[in-house]
Design a protein around this nucleic acid. Structure first.
Lengths: 338, 338
DNA sequence: TTGTAAGCGTTATCAG
DNA sequence: CTGATAACGCTTACAA
């Protein structure tokens, strides 16, 4: 069906070796032959079969990406960042969705191996020992992105933002603005980096200034609007003494909380301050605009992709950890009490 | 390095053909041998090299996806829908970003061919003759999704929502609610399905009831917040007689428009009604909640993937066009004048 | 039911 | 500089 290197060789009156050489510029070929071969290639729209190439060279120019949820904006940005640098280097991405379930993640790790990817970018929810072990056994290098490993720390390369410090800074910001009663409305308990770590940052900031962290001020749920709404409801109903500010585990959660407060006729930020996390696109779509901590997932994707490429090329050999900066964005859902 | 079929054969004391047979269940193998082979496979974690397999069988179990913007929520949903059915059937997705530029689209079409994908899902911006021609020349079947071809209609399979009717229905909804002066705040002029077609629906609805469509009520831009903001500004400043309602080409545009009106102290929906398009996640995140026309991009992705699989399996041979339904969602940014 | 061997489309080694 | 030819890892007639 498709035209092969052999067809070209025959038509150009040379050996397939020569054709291969002009394609890959791997060894000198006389100008005349080269020209002749190029002609025939053009005329026939010849494109080498990458499967055959990969079979012998072990280079497939494909990298894999595993994310929990393809349609989630965070992973969309991340993937875009990854793509921006990979496509530039001639790599194509195979992207898969794990739903954040270990079973799927393990299966995809295998599938990726079958497909002979050259490297993998992995965004997980809880990268535990089982997962790390499986990754280490694979034939390709992997870099964790967005989530560091929860066990076997440092065993596999990682590019993340510092969740502990990011949330610490958010709380600190509120503290500096005179807030004392600050609640935490976070994501899943079992989410290592975006759940546990952020909560840790919250705790640390409070403890550092000697404020007691009360359990009734901590609500964990999902990274969703409805979870933010319900969580805020819980906070509202279970605390006779309401917090003056709440830090949310994500912008969507923050917005859900705002809507609940709105339904209770609470004014933001006058009655209560709300701080988001991520700086999603929609953070400035409505009034009051959301104060939040900005994470550039696009940059994170780029950085991770660069590291993976270094690992693939052998330019880098040891696992490394790289951090992407975050930034507190003060907008209109937070108010100073000073 | 990796263990091959030959290693397995040797260790199990059978021929590689036998191993191949037990792997693919392609021909009967005696129970004893089968068991023995399975054992060895398990013990060595053997996984056949899919490149080698693909080279001979022409089946790579990979499909391609080309979208203008990976991080755009619409395409995120679409991709998720595609993935949901493809992964179920054992297909893996290669996803690429075209930025909506013809040059890139053409290049990616080629790359996909190199990679030996079995089929392609294509989301474009203007699928013109050049593009259609290129697609038809490829070795794989393609189905257009989200965008029908702007030329050579019907030449390549398509799964879309009916943009003309969807926008027609939106305007009709407003008309039925007593609005007479309705403006259009749309996407790019050069976007065939989401731009031109929607505008066409707008015109048709108005003309049908004998309302003159005035140019000053039509503003086209980008599918972005700022474009919605600026577009609304233009509408506001260039019309002494303001519209009582505006239909937007997307929810983001609508939200940008709302923010401009808000800055002008206009009340929504009392002073002016706004209708979005897409029914994005954030449509209900803030008050007033956005009235819009719902398109289920996830379903669209699923439907398109199913069609592609049918094309691949040969179950379907002729190009077909399939429509996904839309639905008017009345929420709080539109008001009845009746 | 099992094995042998001829591809699949390239690259790469080794002579020439 | 150029050409045979042996891999690469697997499937699939064709024989046995």
């Amino acid at each position: 069906m498709a035209v092969t290197i052999e067809d070209i060789a025959r038509e150009a009156g040379v050996s397939i070796a020569t054709v291969s050489r002009v394609i890959n510029k791997t060894k000198p070929v006389s100008p005349e032959l080269r020209a002749r071969v190029y002609q025939v290639i053009e005329r026939n729209h010849f494109k080498p079969n990458t499967l055959a190439q990969g079979l012998v060279t072990k280079k497939t120019n494909m990298i894999g990406i595993i994310v929990p949820d393809i349609s989630n904006a965070v992973f969309g940005k991340l993937t875009k960042g990854i793509n921006s640098i990979c496509s530039k280097k001639g790599y194509t991405m195979m992207v898969c969705e794990s739903q954040g379930e270990l079973k799927n993640e393990l299966r995809l790790l295998d599938i990726m191996e079958d497909k002979q990817i050259e490297g993998l970018l992995f965004a997980g929810v809880d990268v535990n020992h089982t997962l790390v072990k499986a990754m280490l056994e694979k034939s390709y290098p992997v870099v964790l992105v967005t989530q560091e490993a929860s066990e076997d720390e440092g065993a596999v390369s990682t590019v993340v933002h510092d969740n502990v410090t990011a949330m610490y800074d958010a709380v600190k910001f509120l503290l500096d603005n005179g807030h004392q009663r600050i609640a935490y409305l976070g994501g899943p308990k079992n989410d290592f980096s975006s759940g546990k770590k952020r909560l840790k940052g919250y705790r640390r900031a409070l403890e550092e200034v000697g404020i007691e962290v009360r359990d009734s001020y901590i609500v964990q749920g999902e990274f969703s609007f409805s979870s933010g709404f319900e969580g805020m409801k819980t906070l509202y109903e279970e605390n006779s003494k309401l917090p003056t500010a709440v830090v949310a585990g994500s912008d969507v959660i923050a917005v859900g909380a705002i809507q609940y407060l709105d339904s209770m006729r609470m004014k933001i930020p006058d009655d209560i301050s709300i701080m988001g996390f991520d700086d999603s696109d929609f953070a400035t779509y409505f009034k009051p605009e959301l104060s939040t901590v900005r994470i550039s997932y696009f940059d994170e994707g780029e950085k991770a992709a660069r590291m993976l490429l270094r690992l693939i090329s052998g330019e880098q050999n040891e696992p490394a950890v790289d951090y992407v900066p975050h930034k507190i964005i003060r907008r209109s859902t937070t108010k100073s009490l000073n």
